[in-house]
Simulated assay, not measured.
Amino acid sequence: MSPVKPLRADARRNRDQLVAVARAVFDELGTAAPLDEVARRAGIGNATLYRHFPTRDDLLIAVYAEEVAGLSDLGEALLGGSADPLDALFEWLEAFVGHVAAKGDLARTLEPGARRSELHEQWHAAMFEVVVRLVDKCRAAGSIQPDLDPIDLLVLVSGTATAEPVRVRRLLRLIRRGVSVG
Rank of each mutant, 00 (worst) to 15 (best):
L60K: 04
V68P: 00
R41I: 05
P34V: 00
L79G: 15
A20V: 03
L78C: 02
R12L: 15
T48D: 05
G43N: 11
L18Q: 08
V68L: 02
D57V: 10
D58C: 01
I61G: 00
R41Q: 12
P34Y: 03
R56C: 06
R40W: 08
A42Q: 06
R41F: 09
A62H: 04
L71H: 07
F26W: 01
E66H: 14
G30M: 06
D73M: 10
A32D: 15
A39D: 08
A33T: 04
N46I: 06
L74Y: 08
P54K: 10
V25W: 02
L74S: 11
D27I: 00
P34S: 14
L74Q: 14
D58I: 01
P34I: 00
E67L: 10
F26S: 02
H52N: 14
D58T: 11
T48H: 08
A33E: 04
N46V: 12
D27K: 03
D27N: 09
L35E: 09
A32L: 12
R51K: 13
V38E: 04
L29D: 14
A20K: 12
A33D: 03
L79E: 12
A62E: 09
A24I: 01
N14W: 02
D27A: 15
A65V: 01
L79I: 09
Y50A: 09
V21E: 06
I44F: 11
G30Y: 05
G75I: 03
R56H: 11
A47E: 15
R51E: 10
E67H: 12
D27E: 13
L29E: 13
A24Q: 13
V63R: 04
G45Y: 02
A69L: 13
R40V: 05
F53C: 09
L78N: 05
G75H: 05
E37C: 00
A42K: 07
G70F: 03
I44R: 09
Y50K: 06
A32S: 14
T55M: 11
A69Y: 06
G30F: 04
L35Q: 14
V68D: 02
V68K: 03
D73P: 00
A47C: 02
F53P: 07
N46Q: 14
G70N: 05
N14Y: 07
R56A: 09
T48N: 07
R40D: 05
S72W: 08
L18C: 07
D16F: 03
G70M: 06
E66Q: 15
A42W: 05
A77V: 13
N14K: 14
G30E: 02
G70Y: 04
D16V: 07
D57W: 11
A32M: 09
L74P: 08
R40Y: 11
L29A: 14
P34G: 11
R51W: 13
R23W: 01
A42T: 07
A65W: 03
L49E: 05
V38F: 08
R15A: 12
N46S: 13
A39H: 08
L29Y: 12
E37P: 00
